[in-house]
């Protein structure tokens, strides 16, 4: 076991990790539970975080290479307009997938491209939701994309 120091949502944290420990597991073992682990195989996106600006499945990233990294979860990436839109559009049922979708959605919204129904689906295709049938999530992201664009004009 070695210790890994990094910034998590703006605060310094110290994690314990063996060379085989994923960032997801190291975070969760230390009680930081904003990222979930539904597969720990890179298939579901429930563990998505942003590491030094890059969105990654934290179940696939060894914790030990995250020394000094800046790790961001839903706690620092969620904007209120997206939270409101998720709630209004029925984007959440059990909610286990939601923090991962928020990270994927904010990344899509932050990119320069203007989002369409098809591009949103493509950008969210790495995340699994078993409850909602996705349309609520897609509509919420499209609405926020539209509003942010209007606000920026």
């Amino acid at each position: 076991m070695s210790s890994v120091r990094l910034r998590l949502d703006g605060s310094p944290v110290e994690l314990e990790a063996a060379s085989s420990t994923s960032l997801l597991r190291a975070l969760r073992d230390a009680g930081h539970t904003k990222a979930q682990g539904a597969c720990e195989q890179g298939e579901c996106g429930s563990c998505l975080v942003r590491i030094d600006g890059v969105v990654q499945n934290s179940c696939l990233v060894p914790a030990t290479i995250c020394e000094d990294a800046n790790v961001e979860t839903v706690a620092s990436l969620l904007n209120q307009d997206l939270a409101d839109a998720f709630a209004r559009h029925g984007a959440v049922q059990c909610g286990f997938c939601t923090p991962g979708f928020v990270v994927a959605a904010e990344a899509a919204l932050a990119s320069a491209e203007s989002l369409t129904y098809d591009t949103v689906r493509e950008r969210l295709a790495g995340n699994i939701c078993r409850c909602t049938g996705y349309h609520g999530i897609i509509e919420a992201v499209l609405e926020v994309s539209q509003r942010r664009r209007e606000a920026n004009q």
Binding site: T33, V74, L78, F86, A87, V92, G95, T98
Partner: peptide
């Protein structure tokens, strides 16, 4: 809006594995 939804969006909802 359902009462459980806002904390779920914020990642503050406690599941049994948390």
């Amino acid at each position: 809006i359902r009462p459980d939804v806002p904390p779920k969006i914020a990642g503050e909802f406690e599941y049994s594995n948390d």
